[in-house]
Nucleic acid binder design. Sequence first.
DNA 1: GACATCAGTTATGGATCCAAAAATAGGTTT
DNA 2: AAACCTATTTTTGGATCCATAACTGATGTC
Lengths: 229, 229
Amino acid sequence: MTQISHTAITALRKHIRDGRYRPGEKLREVQVADMLGVSRTPVRLAFRTLEQEGLLERTGKQGYVVREVSADDVLCGVEIRGVLEGLAARRLAEKGLSAELKAQLERCVQEGDELINQPELSQEDIEHWGNINARFHALIVNNAGSRAISDAISRNNHLPFASSDSITIDTDHLAQEQRKLQVAQLQHQLVVQALVMGESTRAEMLMREHAYIGLRYGPLFGVPEGMAL
Amino acid sequence: MTQISHTAITALRKHIRDGRYRPGEKLREVQVADMLGVSRTPVRLAFRTLEQEGLLERTGKQGYVVREVSADDVLCGVEIRGVLEGLAARRLAEKGLSAELKAQLERCVQEGDELINQPELSQEDIEHWGNINARFHALIVNNAGSRAISDAISRNNHLPFASSDSITIDTDHLAQEQRKLQVAQLQHQLVVQALVMGESTRAEMLMREHAYIGLRYGPLFGVPEGMAL
DNA sequence: GACATCAGTTATGGATCCAAAAATAGGTTT
DNA sequence: AAACCTATTTTTGGATCCATAACTGATGTC
């Protein structure tokens, strides 16, 4: 099954993300449907979903517009992920890691470590580290005992820059980015350490701080600020 | 505009909440449409929305089923609200309260205080206090600087027992409930105090603890446990 | 007897149609 | 000239239609 409505959702997300639909711009069902070459039905479904995700909002009585995103909204998205992933880490530490999960987390850290401490990083390496990073976060979030947390996080991740994927932005400053990723990697190691030791508060706080890596750490290493904050 | 799809959403929420649709039960578009006396279109829209909210989930290739909710899921919903409202309170404390907001919060506390310290509470009083409680939480959440937080919370509130409204359950034990509400009221006062003083961490932690009131405080006052936890 | 395959049935997704509500534009009145 | 009312156009929401994918059951073969 092709699931046109699903492709419509991702296509619209992409368009909004890339600024092809500007904040405040009104979206008309027919126009979007024509643009995607589909009928209005999947577009209507997509609009509902994107409204739930917070990318669109209703204007008065009729129509959806692309939601404006302020710098504070971006910060908020990051902080929300921080507290939610922090909650996941705390719960995990409190109930204890399974041997299986402990091994998986340590494998993540191991792989990341070998990758990030090379003398020079290629574009490809950074991408690879991004995958490891995603795996790490997913492991913690999906093992916190309830889908409620992972659901809340994945909903939040649709907000611009809120996802843990949005660490690496600037590919022109690989050297500086590497230092940033090394710090991120260290934070991963510390989180695993805390989780293994059952230090739940420490795990929570480390995870909360870790969320800020994409937003607040770059300038310290000379990466020009990606966004106005 | 009647917005049939909206009534379909709320009707379905109610049916699931009341257990008329059991966890694990499969929902068919036609059957639900017939039950509500509408066509399939609004039902399809409603299914998507309820899936986003976490009340329904897809089964394999075809169909939606009512999501199973474990005791741990309920606890998780409460904890998620705790960290999110805690985040809101912290942000509020850090940026400082406007005179307007300070007055509104203090009015909330004032009204609640007069109400809750009567010698005996009626059913009506408890309902009234529920409204004040809702106002209090809304004031904090909606003034945290970004709609991202209030959106995340209102999505979370659709989960069973996760909303701050679900404090009062047991109307047969008014005396015990009163003691619980007095504690809740005290927590409100402490939160306002911390907010006014700019004690951001204290405000956050009080708010997080406050989330547990519906779940963990009842037994201390002799209210039989509402749910199996 | 169990498993696989094939036909029949059912349910869902997408497209189209229709009616009603809302935006817009134009004209009239004060 | 501004405001209000009306008529036209636009847009959305709901219903229906159609094709296709998924489930069910039966038959046949190993």
